[in-house]
């Protein structure tokens, strides 16, 4: 399967740590919009953002630990997030997902 380089240079390690912190912080901030969001589309967009952030966190974690299995995790999460976005968009615009 995927082999990721096990020895990362120092600046890349720092960048990965910074990216993990930023992505996690943004995910927490978006959680406020999920709970508080006045309308349903607000919550939908916020949940979609959380999904994208979890994909980013999985890729960064794969880079940091050198374990390729998290790349597979992020790939599957990205596919399912894409399809759920389309399904919710159809539900919001037409009120019916499958005709």
């Amino acid at each position: 399967m995927t082999t990721v380089a096990t020895e990362v240079p120092g600046f890349l390690d720092l960048a990965i740590q910074f990216g993990l912190i930023v992505a996690s912080g943004v995910t927490l901030l978006v959680g406020y919009r999920v709970i508080q969001g006045p309308t349903t589309p607000d919550r939908v967009v916020a949940l979609d953002t959380i999904g994208t952030n979890v994909v980013a966190i999985a890729v960064l974690f794969a880079l940091a630990t050198g374990r390729g299995l998290f790349v597979t995790v992020s790939l599957v999460l990205a596919i399912i997030g894409f399809i759920s976005t389309i399904a919710v968009a159809r539900y919001v615009t037409e009120g019916d997902i499958i005709e």
């Binding site: 299995l69 597979t72 995790v73 599957v76 596919i79 399912i80 399809i83 389309i86 159809r90 499958i98």
Partner: peptide, 23 residues
């Protein structure tokens, strides 16, 4: 012998068909 297997492959195939049903 690696992450994966019948269940997640089946779920992904079903999502592919679900996408064609939706669109």
């Amino acid at each position: 012998n690696l992450p994966g297997g019948g269940f997640i492959a089946g779920v992904l195939t079903a999502t592919a068909f679900a996408l064609t049903y939706i669109i």
